[in-house]
Amino acid sequence: MAEQVALSRTQVCGILREELFQGDAFHQSDTHIFIIMGASGDLAKKKIYPTIWWLFRDGLLPENTFIVGYARSRLTVADIRKQSEPFFKATPEEKLKLEDFFARNSYVAGQYDDAASYQRLNSHMNALHLGSQANRLFYLALPPTVYEAVTKNIHESCMSQIGWNRIIVEKPFGRDLQSSDRLSNHISSLFREDQIYRIDHYLGKEMVQNLMVLRFANRIFGPIWNRDNIACVILTFKEPFGTEGRGGYFDEFGIIRDVMQNHLLQMLCLVAMEKPASTNSDDVRDEKVKVLKCISEVQANNVVLGQYVGNPDGEGEATKGYLDDPTVPRGSTTATFAAVVLYVENERWDGVPFILRCGKALNERKAEVRLQFHDVAGDIFHQQCKRNELVIRVQPNEAVYTKMMTKKPGMFFNPEESELDLTYGNRYKNVKLPDAYERLILDVFCGSQMHFVRSDELREAWRIFTPLLHQIELEKPKPIPYIYGSRGPTEADELMKRVGFQYEGTYKWVNP
């Protein structure tokens, strides 16, 4: 592979701008107003304001973009700056750019259920340069409990009458099928589907988006991507930290609602779906819905739930269990780990287990898709061969690698495990991989909904998990304890083995 010439960040961002501006969906010269509902909250200060700053800094926003914060707290732009700027990672050389960014910011205080507050917000936006005809993007960085009041008031008082209007809704989209349907029906009564952007930030990850290209742009994968060759698929999300004093919020939802029903299920769809007619948003989402419709409700015998306990040999936070978090209700049975087996009941995947695993306070930070292939028929190497695996590593250190057998150097035919490896950090030294939120917010500006969740996708996802969630809430089974920093409950490994996964433990990928 030829040595790549190092590029400056300015040059890299210039390439990104060229890609972005050559499309006809990006209205570079139009006025846009980006409204952050819930501007005083954690999500706004840690993710949304920093993301908008990065896009502005790199010249990736339309030229005439204004940012308006809205929340109940009586704040000023200076207050917003004070709480969000520490997350910007701005350099001293960017000081003038930073001043320009905050000059485009404003803030309006108001209630979430008060019509007069929204009329005041609308008047404020109209007073901005060309504000009355601007395109408006409303980001709901809010708890779902206020979605209905907020969307109703936005629709009645704050819509642009000339430009387009788009609304970005953060997960969780309800707690179960019934609450999700209620919320979807409410929002759909106010906005068209092409105006609604239900954001799952995992769909903005580079390697998640790469799944489609790997599958449908490489001839070698087509013939082997089926039940005849693939023994099982494992989708993993692991965090090495616990709730760390923020367990009160987590306890309301648990690990299945927080990660599995959305992030992991979306990745499953991209692995299992048929080739779409095109890369058009609805063509892709149509195929994802077909996959979900082929999955039956989760069966309790295919589920393992766990909850982390303190590690007596650990240090600091590792010595504390979930129930030691003062914000967690006493005696909570909320799971911090889950392993679930699903089956896609169609011709391509009949009988292939899709194993979804996620948890907190585990032994490493990792998100990946792992396809394990069947054993080689007619073994001539005296059971020395391990199964081939194709691994798409989402985070950290984005990579695609194939675990395969090669001859060990020497005189004899002794096979050993090795890999074919594409590590993004080595291959793409001159490429700026956008943060997931950067990519998705740019998608909203461009009107691309491919990486957002459609209402029928959402409904099918909740259909699969709601009976299990209701059973857990009714019966309150005690989750299996696992030690902070471990791989999780051993019962999860036993479940995976029972459905056909072979864990060798003899080879570990190392970032080159």
Rank of each mutant, 00 (worst) to 15 (best):
A6C: 15
A6M: 15
Q11H: 15
G14Q: 15
G14D: 15
L16I: 15
L16M: 15
R17T: 15
E18Y: 07
E19H: 15
L20K: 08
L20G: 00
L20R: 15
Q22P: 15
F26W: 15
S29G: 08
D30G: 10
T31P: 13
I35V: 10
I36N: 03
M37N: 06
G38K: 03
G41Y: 02
K45G: 05
K46C: 01
K46M: 04
T51K: 05
I52E: 03
I52G: 00
W53C: 01
L55H: 08
L55A: 12
R57H: 05
G59R: 09
G59A: 07
G59T: 04
L60Y: 07
F66K: 11
I67V: 15
I67L: 07
V68N: 02
V68P: 03
A71C: 05
R72F: 03
R74V: 15
A78K: 12
D79Y: 07
D79S: 12
I80M: 12
R81D: 05
K82T: 11
Q83W: 10
Q83R: 12
P86Q: 12
F87W: 12
A90L: 09
A90G: 08
A90H: 06
E93I: 10
E94G: 03
K95T: 12
K95A: 14
E99G: 10
A103M: 15
R104P: 03
S106K: 11
S106V: 11
Y107M: 09
Y107R: 02
V108R: 06
A109G: 13
Q111E: 13
A116N: 13
Y118V: 07
R120I: 14
R120W: 11
R120P: 09
L121S: 00
L121W: 01
S123H: 15
H124Y: 11
H124P: 04
M125V: 13
N126F: 09
A127H: 14
L128T: 13
L130P: 12
S132K: 13
Q133K: 13
Q133N: 13
Q133V: 12
N135M: 14
N135H: 12
R136L: 05
L140I: 09
L140H: 07
L142W: 00
P143V: 13
P144I: 03
T145K: 05
V146D: 02
Y147H: 01
E148C: 09
N153F: 12
I154A: 10
H155F: 10
S157G: 14
C158D: 10
S160A: 13
I162V: 14
G163N: 10
N165K: 09
R166M: 04
I168N: 02
I168V: 08
I168E: 04
E170T: 05
F173D: 03
D176C: 11
D176A: 00
Q178S: 15
S179N: 04
D181I: 05
D181G: 09
R182Q: 15
R182C: 12
L183T: 04
S184Q: 12
N185Q: 14
N185H: 12
S188K: 12
S189F: 09
E193A: 01
Q195K: 06
D200Y: 01
L203G: 03
M207E: 00
M207S: 01
V208S: 05
Q209N: 09
L211C: 07
M212Y: 04
L214R: 05
R215D: 02
F216E: 01
F216P: 04
A217H: 01
A217F: 04
A217L: 00
A217D: 03
A217M: 06
F221Q: 05
F221S: 07
F221L: 12
P223G: 07
W225G: 02
W225I: 07
N226C: 09
N226S: 12
N229H: 11
A231Q: 12
A231H: 07
L235K: 02
L235P: 02
F237G: 06
K238V: 01
F241N: 07
G242A: 06
T243H: 02
T243Y: 06
E244N: 12
E244P: 07
G245T: 07
G245Y: 09
R246N: 03
R246M: 02
G247L: 05
G248K: 04
Y249C: 02
E252Y: 09
F253N: 10
